[in-house]
Design a protein around this nucleic acid. Structure first.
Lengths: 243, 243
DNA sequence: ACCTGAACACCGTTCAAGT
DNA sequence: ACCTGAACACCGTTCAAGT
């Protein structure tokens, strides 16, 4: 490792500060109030200095997203340290996803924002490639668990279904939840009760239907979830509980 | 019905023109290039005139969304005219959802855009209430099919699961598909094959798992889908095929 | 070498003036 | 009564000037 100069460390620290301030700004005032003017104010640097770090405001968002994807990947790596049957290991991944999305909602939503029309075009191809690579790393962690389950004979996927296809289903169900929550969707008026519980119910039905053994009638996954939280994510659970 | 004056008809026509132009603008140049300046140019009216129709640019989007929700609801009503077993009727709803999302991607995405932070706040409570009511009307069409299936004894929902909760699952899986497609997600790099087929596979697994009778091994739903498209949505299928 | 902030461009919104 | 477009405010981006 090359040792960094004081100046280099300062630049890295400032870059982190810009991203911290951006996340806070978006969380408190929304994407439409996010901008270079505000970042300059809140960091107490001039706009010119912000532009030495990022080519445009969309690149700030992209880098926030990528910092988040590294955190998400690390959450999944921690989930993979859990020892248990293959569906418990998937449950650990599920909970890690939940914790990441809840503790970093801005970064989570930014995954899609940076791909949306009008934003996408302003971001360099290099940044998009780096983001894709990170998303692949995240997905690969889930594929590991599915592949294990197939090797253990806990699971046999339907014909034509690859592990990645199943990951898509998980992701869509999760993302719907976050969207309904952060976007203040009137889901209660629609007749939907507790969203988080609902996603878990739909997922359980999907997994039991495959079937992915042991199915939920033959194993107490609520107890497994408690153990996973206690052993792997105690601090994350505590910080959500006290909000 | 009161007869409208020529002036009133002109105003309605202009309002439709503004929405048409907005949808086209967003489809071709993205949300970030959507704005009052461009709408004025494209409609060949002054900005002041646009502001006589809509209080702000976000209200334009909201009205575009609501016009879309009425189309969606009508697609579902057409799907409900299909005669068949309860899972075929759900398949008709599924296909109607697909056609709506594909033929009106801008309106479909706008459902979420108008609820997002920074946009939501600029829209009047009255407009939000009207949108919620329309969304409820859309969801109610799906609840009808699920309720029928329960009454027929084709389906028994798991404990604690209401019909609306299941609708949520369907919607999330669908929306994920559209998002991956319109946002140019690199899903191929992730190992996912054909998205539309994938969603259908995950949904089928979920329904078979419930189980919702007749399950897919006991009925040829591919044939049902063909019949539904032929009888109910021939024009929509043709217009997608020729793109 | 690094940082600043004035200057410019673009667009949302308003409103006095025109027909 | 209806429509227009100049005027103003706000913010993304640049760059000449300062330290």
């Amino acid at each position: 490792m090359t040792k960094l100069t004081r100046k280099q460390r300062e630049i890295i620290a400032r870059q982190e500060l810009i991203l911290d301030v951006s996340a806070k700004l978006i969380a408190e005032q929304g994407f439409s109030n996010f901008g270079m003017e505000r970042i300059a104010e809140l960091t107490e640097y001039s706009k010119g200095t912000i532009y030495q770090h990022f080519q445009c405001k969309e690149e700030v968002l992209m880098h926030l997203c990528m910092r988040g994807l590294r955190i998400w990947r690390d959450f999944f790596d921690r989930a993979l340290t859990f020892r248990g049957n293959s569906r418990e290991r998937l449950l650990a991944i599920h909970l890690a996803h939940d914790f990441y999305a809840k503790l970093h909602p801005v970064e989570y939503e930014s995954i899609y924002t940076v791909k949306s029309a009008g934003v996408r075009e302003k971001i360099s191809p290099e940044s998009h490639a780096a983001q894709n690579e990170l998303m692949k790393e995240v997905i690969d962690r889930v594929v590991i668990v599915i592949t294990e389950a197939i090797e253990n004979r806990d699971l046999k996927l339907p014909e034509n279904m690859a592990p990645q296809d199943l990951v898509y289903g998980f992701w869509a169900l999760h993302y719907g939840e976050l969207m309904f929550e952060t976007f203040n969707f009137p889901y209660r008026n629609m007749g939907i009760g507790d969203l988080e519980n609902n996603v878990r119910l739909v997922l359980r039905t999907l997994l039991d239907g495959l079937p992915w053994e042991p199915v939920s009638t033959r194993h107490d996954y609520a107890a497994s979830a408690e153990r996973i939280v206690r052993e792997i994510f105690p601090e994350e659970a505590a910080s959500i509980a006290m909000r």
